Amino acid sequence: MGNILDDDATGADPVSAKLESLGIHLDPGIPYRLESMFPRLEGWGAKGELKRKGKIIRNVEPKLAEMLRDGEEVLYIAKGVQYSFAEHYFMGVWAMTINQTVFVLTNVRLIMLRTNSSGVPKETAWMVYYSQIEKLKGGWTGMMSLKLDDGRKLQFSGFSKLDRSTMPQVFEQALEKYREHGFEPEVTQSLENLCGYCHGRVPKDEYECRRCGAEFWKPSAVALRSLVFPSWGDFVLKHYVVMGVELIGYAVTWIVAGVLVIAALSGGGDPLELLIAVGLGAFFIAIAHTVDGAVTYFVAKKGLHPRRGPTHETVEDIDEVLVES
């Protein structure tokens, strides 16, 4: 079997000169294939695009310096927003605040980092080997579609037109190298969870890192907290903006329930009317608890959220070694 990590970068000088002229300085310790990362250097809007991309890269560089393995090279970086109809239906525009995602395409895998709106990485991350990607395609609607080998489909918005056209090309080139070298790594699921501390792979349905001992929240435990008290689960997940919005909504629900009861009492205190008012109020409150618990479970299920830090020094896991001879 060949070595998937042996391809050399060429033609980076014009790109380096352009970046230097714009004051964009990248970490020299991170191996970038600049000609694929910056495919357009001139033309209308190119300067702004380069500066925007440079800012995204600088924000993720500290995390990349920890995550990249020996011989791994960065081919492209872009930022978008993961889209879910269910989340947008129940959470509205606030769903965008918890789904900011940076794509890092290397010569070995696609790394996905959950970030804040500025592109600064949080603790949640995933990786996908290219052999596990059935399709990566940008659509005319502005969406980026990622279809995985295990049948899972992910949708992303917010990528620029250049990103939507370039990323599929980079993916196809990397996939061709996979085929040339016969690189077919074993996985537990197409979209593998990564530990937020040692960045090792955490197998499907496991919530403790075998390499460093870090523990992550189980979706059921987070959902139960939101079922008991709406927004508690979001506090655990550190989704503070969403937590605040849910608290306001929950307070409004209680106000509506209270108004119904007060109206029934002020109307003469008819027992039947009072019973109906109390029943409606309790129904609205129960719906708030149930919906928040269900949505929180869905959100928590998508990735790993730290509960406790590492308990021991990272140990090498043979499953994490990429270089094969």
Rank of each mutant, 00 (worst) to 15 (best):
H239L: 13
H239Q: 15
H239M: 11
V241R: 06
V241T: 11
V242S: 11
V242D: 09
M243T: 13
M243K: 13
G244D: 12
V245A: 15
E246A: 15
E246Q: 05
E246N: 15
E246I: 04
L247H: 11
L247T: 09
I248W: 10
I248Q: 02
G249W: 10
G249D: 08
G249P: 01
Y250C: 10
A251D: 08
A251C: 03
V252H: 02
V252R: 08
V252E: 01
V252A: 14
I255M: 12
I255F: 12
V256L: 11
V256K: 06
A257T: 05
A257M: 09
V259C: 08
V259H: 00
V259Q: 05
V259W: 06
V259D: 01
L260P: 04
L260R: 06
V261P: 01
I262P: 00
I262C: 01
A263E: 13
A263Y: 06
A264L: 12
A264W: 10
A264T: 02
L265C: 07
L265Y: 02
S266M: 14
S266F: 02
S266E: 09
G268N: 03
G269S: 05
D270K: 13
P271Q: 07
P271S: 07
P271K: 03
P271T: 12
L272F: 14
L272D: 11
E273A: 14
L274V: 15
L274Y: 09
L275D: 11
I276P: 01
A277V: 03
V278S: 09
G279P: 01
G279H: 05
L280Y: 02
L280A: 08
G281N: 07
G281D: 03
A282K: 11
A282D: 10
A282H: 08
F283E: 05
F284Q: 00
F284E: 06
F284N: 00
I285T: 13
I285Q: 03
I285D: 00
A286D: 05
I287Q: 10
A288G: 04
A288V: 05
H289L: 06
H289G: 04
H289F: 07
H289Y: 04
T290A: 15
T290M: 05
V291K: 00
V291H: 00
D292Y: 04
D292K: 13
G293M: 07
G293T: 11
G293C: 10
G293D: 05
A294F: 05
A294M: 13
A294C: 13
V295S: 11
V295F: 02
T296Y: 07
Y297I: 02
Y297L: 14
Y297P: 04
V299D: 09
A300E: 08
K301N: 15
K301C: 06
K302H: 07
K302I: 07
K302M: 14
G303L: 09
G303Y: 13
G303K: 11
L304M: 03
L304S: 06
H305L: 09
H305C: 02
P306I: 09
P306A: 10
R307C: 05
R307Q: 08
R307A: 06
R307W: 08
R308E: 14
G309W: 04
P310A: 11
H312Q: 11
H312M: 02
E313G: 12
T314H: 09
T314G: 11
V315L: 15
V315N: 12
V315T: 15
V315W: 12
